[in-house]
Design a protein around this nucleic acid. Structure first.
Lengths: 341, 341
DNA sequence: TATCCTCTTGGAAGCGTTTGCAAATCGCCA
DNA sequence: TGGCGATTTGCAAACGCTTCCAAGAGGATA
C-alpha cells in the first residue's frame, strides 16, 4: 500500500505539504502542488478514506434513509439525490428501513450514530425528536422530505393545497361524483401525507357543497397493484360508480386507470382520473397530474445538507415548500351525460 | 464525545478489554463482557466507525454499483441487496453511475479505490480487467451480476436459454409471426445481455425453420415508455403485424401490451406477449414471463461477498447460474385464426 | 505443593491522515 | 542592504480504535 509518505518522499516534500496540496486546503506554492500531484499520479496513490475521516472528522458521505426503494417516489428521489451527491463529491449510504421496526432501530443505533455520515436525508420517515437531537448534537445536519421533522430542516409540498386544486379541477369540469383513493397509514412512515391530501379533497368537496361518499374514499398502499385491486372493488358496483377519481399518487392513478379499462370504462369519457407525482409513465397513460418535481426535491435536499455541513454555526432549521406543476393531459374531461348512473 | 476510554474507565477495565468485549472477538470473561456492555449502554457509547475501520482495515461496508436505480431490475436488486446487507450488519454505499462516462471514472478513481468499501457488487456494469485486478489486489472481493466480469465471481441467468424457451413457448402455441423487442446496447453497460437474449430468440426461430423478419426485431431502452413507443411503431403497419411479441424485459412487455391496447388489439387473442423478469406488475397485466428472482440474486450476491470478505486466501472466482421460473399467465395464447394478416 | 497450561487482562504500538504551531523563506519597500 | 509582513513548509501531536505481546490469574495434574 502506498501511503502519503511515499508520495511525499517521491515529491521531495513533507507529508504535511502533500496533504495540503492534494486536499486543496491551506497555502501551497504552485510548484509544490504540481509536484505533489504528479507524484501521486505516478504512484496511483489515493487518499485513505478512513484515515482522512478520522483525522478530519468529515466523511464526505451522506446517509439517505428511505422506507422503500421500490415505489416510484423513492426511486426517483434516490436518482436525484445520488446524482447531486456525486457531483458534490459525496458518497451516498443508503438505508432502506422498509422492513420491520427492529431494522429501523438498528439503523439508528448501529449505523447512523457511528459518525459514519456527515449528514442525513430522511424521506417519509418519522423520527423522534430525541433521535433528531442526538444527530444534531454531533453536528450532523438532517433534512427531511415529505413530512415534518421537529427541529430539523424539511422540504415538502403543499399536500393539502394541491389535493384541493386537483379536486377543484375535477369539480370545474362538472364532476360531482368524485372518489378519492388515499394511502394507507404505515407504521412510522408516510405520516401525515395521506391525511393532508385527503383533507384537501374534503375541503374542496365541502366548499363545493358536495357530500363525500364514504364508499368512494378508498385506500391502497401507494402502488399500482394495490390501487388496481382497490379500484376494482370500488368500480365493481356499477350503479354507484363515481365519474372521477382523485388518486393520492400517480401510481395509484395508473392502477385505477388499468382497473377501469378492465371494466370497459373509457378514460376520460366514463371515468376521469387525476393523480399527484409526475410519474414517468404519466405520459403514456395520458395522466393528468400534479408534478412535484421529485428529482428537484432531491437536488435541493443535497444542496441543503451540503451547505449545512460546512456551515458553522449550524443554520437554523427551515421549512421549504417545493413548487409543483399542474399537468393537464387526457385522463380528465367533462363527465359524459348519464355516466356513472 | 464519549470514547472507548470513558467506557473502560466506567467499567473498571482496560480499553483493550472493552474493545474485545464489544466486538466479540477474542476471549473475555463473561463478567467483564457484561460490565463493558453495561457501561457502554449507560454512556450511550457507539464505536467510531472510522477509527475502527482505520485500525482494523475493515469497513463493514459494501459498494453497489448500478447504472440506474430507476429501471425495475435495478430497484428490485437494490431492495434485495440492501436488506441482506442490513441483516449481515453491513452498510450499503450506492454508486449510481447512470450518467456519463466521466461520472463512471470518478466513481472508480475517487471512490471505490479509497478503501472505503470492503467489497463491490457490480450490476450490469462492464469493468475493465485492469480495474478488477486493482480491486482484487487490495483484497476487495467483487461480484458481478448480469454479465461476465473477467477474473471476478459472477451471478447470471441463462439469458440465451430462457430467451429460447420463451420463444419456444410462443412457437408451441402455434405462432409463426413472432417479433422480438430487444434492448439497446448502452455504452459500457448491459453488455451482452440484449445480444444473448436475441440470439436465443434467433436460435429458436431457426430451429423451427422460421425466418426472422427484420422489421419485427425492434429495440427499446428497457423501459415501459420506450417500449411503448417502439411497439406503436411496429404495430402501426396493420397488414404486416406479428401475432406474438417476445420482449427482452417485462417492462418492455408491458409497454408492448399498452401499445397493443391503444390499437384495439386484444391480448392475447390478437397479440400474445411474453417477457422476462418477474416484474411486480406482471400479475395485473396477466403477463406470461420468466421470473429471474431478482431479490434472490441480490441476496446471493451478498452471501458471496460476505463470504469472500472474511475468507483468506480469497476464494476462486466462480460463475453461478441463477435459476429461473417460467410463469404462464394470460398474455399468451394460441393465435386467433386469421389474426396478424 | 510445585509445575504447566489455558484463559484473561493491560500496555502500547500502530492504522494513515489532518492541522496547529513555529520556523524558514520570499518579496518588497525604505 | 536591512527589516517586515505574508507565504510556504515541516514537525509532531492528535484522531479513536484494534491487536500484538507479555504478564497475571486460575486450574488441573503429578
Amino acid at each position: 500500500m502506498t501511503g502519503i509518505k511515499d508520495v511525499a518522499e517521491r515529491a521531495g516534500l513533507s507529508v504535511a505539504t502533500v496533504s495540503r496540496a492534494l486536499s486543496g486546503k491551506g497555502n501551497v506554492s504552485p510548484s509544490s502542488r504540481e509536484r505533489a500531484r504528479a507524484a501521486a499520479a505516478e504512484l496511483g496513490f489515493v487518499l485513505s478514506y478512513h484515515a482522512s475521516s478520522l483525522a478530519s472528522g468529515r466523511s464526505r458521505n451522506v446517509g439517505l434513509v428511505v422506507p422503500s426503494v421500490h415505489r416510484w417516489f423513492f426511486s426517483a428521489l434516490i436518482e436525484g439525490v445520488s446524482s447531486s451527491l456525486l457531483q458534490a463529491g459525496y458518497d451516498l449510504t443508503l438505508y432502506n428501513i422498509g422492513g420491520d421496526h427492529e431494522q429501523r432501530q438498528r439503523v439508528f443505533s448501529d449505523f447512523l450514530l457511528r459518525k459514519r455520515v456527515d449528514a442525513v436525508i430522511a424521506v417519509s420517515v418519522e423520527l423522534a425528536e430525541e433521535e433528531i437531537q442526538k444527530l444534531l448534537a454531533v453536528h450532523r445536519p438532517i433534512v427531511g422530505i415529505g413530512g415534518p421533522l421537529p427541529g430539523a430542516s424539511t422540504i415538502r409540498i403543499d399536500d393539502s393545497g394541491i389535493a384541493e386544486s386537483a379536486t377543484r379541477h375535477l369539480l370545474g369540469l362538472g364532476h360531482t361524483r368524485i372518489a378519492h383513493m388515499t394511502g394507507e397509514e404505515f407504521y412510522e412512515q408516510d405520516f401525515q401525507l395521506p391525511g393532508s391530501r385527503r383533507s384537501g379533497f374534503e375541503k374542496a368537496m365541502s366548499d363545493a357543497g358536495l357530500p363525500v361518499h364514504p364508499a368512494w374514499v378508498v385506500t391502497a398502499d401507494f402502488t399500482v397493484e394495490g390501487a388496481y385491486a382497490s379500484a376494482r372493488r370500488m368500480l365493481a358496483s356499477a350503479p354507484e360508480r363515481p365519474t372521477a377519481v382523485f388518486a393520492a399518487s400517480d401510481e395509484m392513478a395508473i392502477g385505477t386507470i388499468l382497473a377501469a379499462r378492465d371494466f370497459g370504462l373509457r378514460v376520460p369519457q366514463e371515468l376521469s382520473v387525476i393523480g399527484i407525482d409526475g410519474h414517468d409513465l404519466g405520459e403514456i397513460f395520458g395522466l393528468t397530474t400534479i408534478d412535484q418535481d421529485v428529482k428537484g426535491q432531491g437536488a435541493l435536499a443535497v444542496r441543503k445538507v451540503v451547505a449545512a455541513i460546512d456551515s458553522n454555526p449550524p443554520p437554523e432549521p427551515d421549512d421549504t415548500q417545493h413548487p409543483t406543476t399542474f399537468v393537464v393531459r387526457s385522463s380528465t374531461a367533462v363527465p359524459a351525460p348519464g355516466s356513472g348512473r
